[in-house]
Amino acid sequence: MGNFDSLSIAMTTVSSSLSGAAQQGINVLALLRKCGIDPRLLNSPQARIPVRQFIKLCRYSSGRLNDEQYGLLEKPQRLGTYRAIAINVVHAKNLGDALNRYAEFSNLFENSFEFQLKAKARRAEFIIRRRPLMTVHNNFAVESALMIAHRFSSWLINERITLQGVYIDYPSPPFHEYNYLFYGAPVLNNQDYAAIEFDAGYLERPIVQNEVHLESYLQNAPAKLYLPLDESGQLSLQVRKILSDLPNSLSSNTALSDTSKALGISSDTLRRRLKREGTNFQTIRANIRRELAIHYLASSSETIENIAYKTGYTEPGAFIRAFKNWTGYTPLKFRKQLEY
């Protein structure tokens, strides 16, 4: 659990997650104390607690309620529901097939949400709509469902899926965690439905996990939802960190050899070990470029030229072509979309 030491979460999120338990008559103050959380912090929504305490709270809460959605939906989602869905999904051929299975199987339970995968041109959306006349006690359930879909999909293909947008169907609350939960992806509120949007090319990625890997994944839930999500392998994570720390690594022709030296191994060994983790050096570097580009376009007023330079391109034309290949849009059109 050492990876959790530097991670924290706002008390407003903690409070939201407990609203269903409170309505079910659970003594949430006692639950907080059992997890080592001072109940008085509920009066300070901007306060933060270690993520490891929040994960412990989630486990206790779902266990007391026998509900994997913490009492937040119309009906309890009994313990084991996610496992049943995941076992069905992990046998899919590719991510598109997996997400269709995820939606179809989840919809059989006819609870507060209806799920749908929608793809057109270069964009795909995994959509969550509220069922009419069914209660959602707190919007934390929406955020959680979107986050689970994103994390699980990324795990299935062993590659972090870069989100082009996150849509929520309610106003953003104060002290929200969207930047953390969705890795800086642009979040649009008050939409007609909730969704995560990403490059439709991901739908063709093969599923590389199996039932054996799934048991380990589920044993660590919900911990894996709140850990920083990189390519799943340990070496992949190290490569991402080195590339983020090395000056000019996104544009340098010697980035591979520089990274290998930093790890104390040869370039051939690095390539071979990354292949065993289901990825390669070029993919990791491209993912970092794409994530940075979307982040800068969504959260800054930087010029296209400056963003091109910051993401490792020596001239804007190459950056514009790459961005359009990633998203189906030019950087300018993508930025204008976020203004509406």
Rank of each mutant, 00 (worst) to 15 (best):
residue 18 L to A: 06
residue 19 S to N: 08
residue 23 Q to G: 06
residue 34 K to L: 14
residue 35 C to H: 03
residue 42 L to Q: 07
residue 46 Q to G: 02
residue 48 R to P: 00
residue 52 R to Y: 09
residue 52 R to Q: 12
residue 53 Q to K: 11
residue 56 K to D: 15
residue 56 K to V: 04
residue 57 L to Q: 05
residue 57 L to V: 02
residue 58 C to V: 02
residue 59 R to T: 03
residue 61 S to L: 10
residue 62 S to E: 09
residue 62 S to N: 07
residue 63 G to Q: 14
residue 64 R to C: 04
residue 65 L to G: 01
residue 65 L to T: 04
residue 66 N to R: 08
residue 66 N to K: 11
residue 69 Q to W: 11
residue 71 G to W: 08
residue 71 G to S: 12
residue 71 G to E: 05
residue 72 L to F: 02
residue 73 L to P: 02
residue 73 L to C: 08
residue 74 E to C: 07
residue 81 T to A: 10
residue 82 Y to F: 15
residue 83 R to I: 05
residue 84 A to P: 00
residue 85 I to F: 07
residue 87 I to A: 05
residue 87 I to T: 12
residue 93 K to R: 13
residue 94 N to Q: 09
residue 96 G to P: 07
residue 97 D to K: 14
residue 98 A to V: 14
residue 98 A to M: 03
residue 100 N to S: 07
residue 101 R to T: 13
residue 111 N to W: 06
residue 111 N to Q: 06
residue 113 F to M: 11
residue 113 F to E: 06
residue 116 Q to G: 09
residue 118 K to Y: 11
residue 121 A to Q: 14
residue 122 R to A: 14
residue 124 A to L: 10
residue 126 F to A: 11
residue 128 I to S: 03
residue 128 I to A: 01
residue 130 R to S: 12
residue 131 R to Q: 14
residue 131 R to T: 08
residue 135 T to R: 10
residue 137 H to S: 05
residue 139 N to Q: 12
